[in-house]
Amino acid sequence: MDSDNVDRINQLLEQDVELREKIKDQVAEFDKKTRTMSGILNRIHSTPSDGLPALLTSVQPVLDSCKDVTASLAAIIPPNQFWRWKEMWSISLRNAVFSAALIHYLQHGTLLSLSEATDILGIKSEWQDRFSLPIEDYLHGLITLVNELSRLAVNSVTLGNFEQPIKISVFVKDLFAGFSMLNLKNDTLRRRYDSLKYDLKKIEEVVYDVSLRKLAPSAKAENPAPMVE
């Protein structure tokens, strides 16, 4: 190997190290934002329904600021290198999708779509070869949403909100049915999907108990209203 070739290889290696450090800095900022959102949203388990609007309002600025990180990452990733670097931020991205989906559900009682998640996180179509929201990461975020809602179904009863588990049950059953129609080839995603049946069972047990004790009008609601007005 001649000296020119060695110098060129060393130059490329140094460029990779510099780029990796820049990405790590942005991912660290992304992680900070997602941890902050998770910390705030964890309070939903101890907050009465009438206090949820203020709680969700307080977390919204943090969610909005995630757009700055996605824009920064898109700016530093070289063209056509998305798949080379995506694993560095995939966990952060999944957590951001989870937070966005949970906020959306609590506000509207509906599922956050892939396109809505992309818009909320400020991910632009022209970044496709540098930074995007893969369907796998979106689905991981939704599975985490179900995990959290199964906790909420239990804790809402403690707070005296007996209708909320019923609404959650309708929503989660519909989401589970949607997942069951997907051809999941990703092993990790498949295992996490399989675990959803335990969350669903947990929610159904809460609904059964609420219904048996006649604490809520009905356990057969088909179009749940938003939890936050």
Rank of each mutant, 00 (worst) to 15 (best):
N5L: 11
I77N: 10
V170K: 15
D119K: 13
V17A: 11
W89D: 01
P48D: 04
L189M: 02
E136I: 07
K202M: 10
N5V: 08
G122W: 02
N147I: 03
F171T: 09
S49F: 11
M1W: 01
I44Y: 07
L102E: 12
M227W: 14
S58V: 00
E222F: 15
P61I: 00
D199T: 07
Y193W: 11
L212G: 12
P217Q: 04
L19I: 10
K167G: 14
F131G: 09
P78H: 09
D194T: 09
R191L: 13
E126T: 06
I23L: 06
T118K: 08
S125D: 11
A96Y: 06
W85K: 06
Y208R: 03
A74I: 13
Q107I: 01
D194L: 13
D187G: 03
R191C: 00
L56M: 00
A28T: 14
D194Y: 07
L13G: 02
I40Y: 04
V154E: 02
E29V: 10
N183S: 04
E205T: 03
Q81T: 14
T47R: 05
L142A: 00
I44F: 08
M37R: 02
L102R: 09
K22N: 13
E205L: 11
T158D: 11
E14G: 12
E229H: 15
N147L: 11
L159K: 08
S58E: 11
D50E: 14
T188N: 14
I143S: 03
M88R: 12
G39W: 01
Y193G: 02
D129Y: 04
R191W: 03
A221W: 14
N95L: 12
Q128G: 03
L63V: 13
V172Y: 05
E14F: 04
P226M: 00
A74T: 06
V6Y: 04
A28M: 13
L159W: 08
I77V: 15
D187S: 09
L184C: 04
A117N: 10
L159P: 12
M37Q: 03
K124E: 15
D25R: 10
V228C: 10
P134S: 03
L63K: 06
P134Q: 01
V17T: 02
V210N: 07
K33R: 15
G51F: 07
L149S: 01
G141T: 05
E136K: 09
S49A: 15
E14D: 14
Q164I: 09
F171E: 07
Q11I: 03
A71W: 03
A71D: 10
P165D: 09
E87S: 15
G160E: 03
I76C: 06
